[in-house]
Simulated scan of single mutants.
Amino acid sequence: MRTTLASCLLMVLALDSMAQGTSTAQVEVRFDHPEKFRDASLDNRAYPRGADPQVMKALAEHLQALGQRYLRPGQQLLIDIRDIDLAGQFEPWHSQAYDVRFLREVTWPSIDLDYTFEQPGQPTLKAKERLSDKMYLSRPGRLGNNDRLYAEKAMLGDWFRQRFAPPSS
Rank of each mutant, 00 (worst) to 15 (best):
T107D: 12
S17G: 01
I111N: 02
R161Q: 15
K134Y: 10
D112E: 14
R161W: 01
T24W: 09
S17W: 00
F102H: 13
D83W: 00
G21I: 07
G88A: 06
L131I: 08
Y150W: 10
A25V: 01
N145Q: 11
R45E: 13
Q76K: 14
S110N: 13
D43Y: 10
L42C: 08
P34H: 06
D112T: 12
G121V: 10
G121E: 06
A127G: 01
A151N: 08
S110A: 13
Q162L: 13
M18I: 10
E105K: 12
V27P: 01
D133N: 14
L149Q: 03
H33V: 12
S17F: 00
I79Y: 00
M1Q: 12
S41G: 09
M56R: 05
A46V: 08
V55L: 07
L15F: 04
G50F: 05
E118G: 07
R2N: 10
L59K: 03
S168I: 07
D99C: 00
S132F: 12
E129Q: 15
Q64T: 08
L125C: 09
Q64M: 14
E152N: 04
K126S: 13
Q96G: 03
F117E: 05
R104L: 15
W159M: 06
Q20L: 12
A40T: 01
K128Y: 11
Y136A: 05
R130I: 05
L78I: 09
A19G: 10
V29R: 01
G88Y: 06
M1I: 06
H62G: 07
Q20W: 00
N145W: 02
Y47P: 08
V106W: 09
L125W: 14
Q20T: 02
A51Q: 03
D52N: 08
F117N: 04
E91Y: 13
K36L: 14
L66P: 00
A60F: 01
P92N: 07
E35Q: 15
F37V: 08
L9R: 02
M18A: 14
T4Y: 11
W159Y: 08
M1F: 05
M11I: 05
L77K: 02
S110G: 09
Y70D: 14
E105D: 13
R72Q: 15
D114F: 03
P120M: 06
D43L: 06
F31P: 00
T124V: 15
L78E: 09
A165K: 11
Y47K: 01
N146L: 12
V106M: 07
A19Y: 02
F102C: 03
L10S: 14
R104W: 01
P92R: 11
A65E: 13
S132Q: 15
Q76P: 00
P92F: 08
D85V: 12
P123L: 11
D114C: 10
M135Q: 15
L143K: 12
R142K: 13
K128V: 03
A165G: 08
A151E: 12
L86F: 05
D133T: 06
W108F: 15
F160V: 09
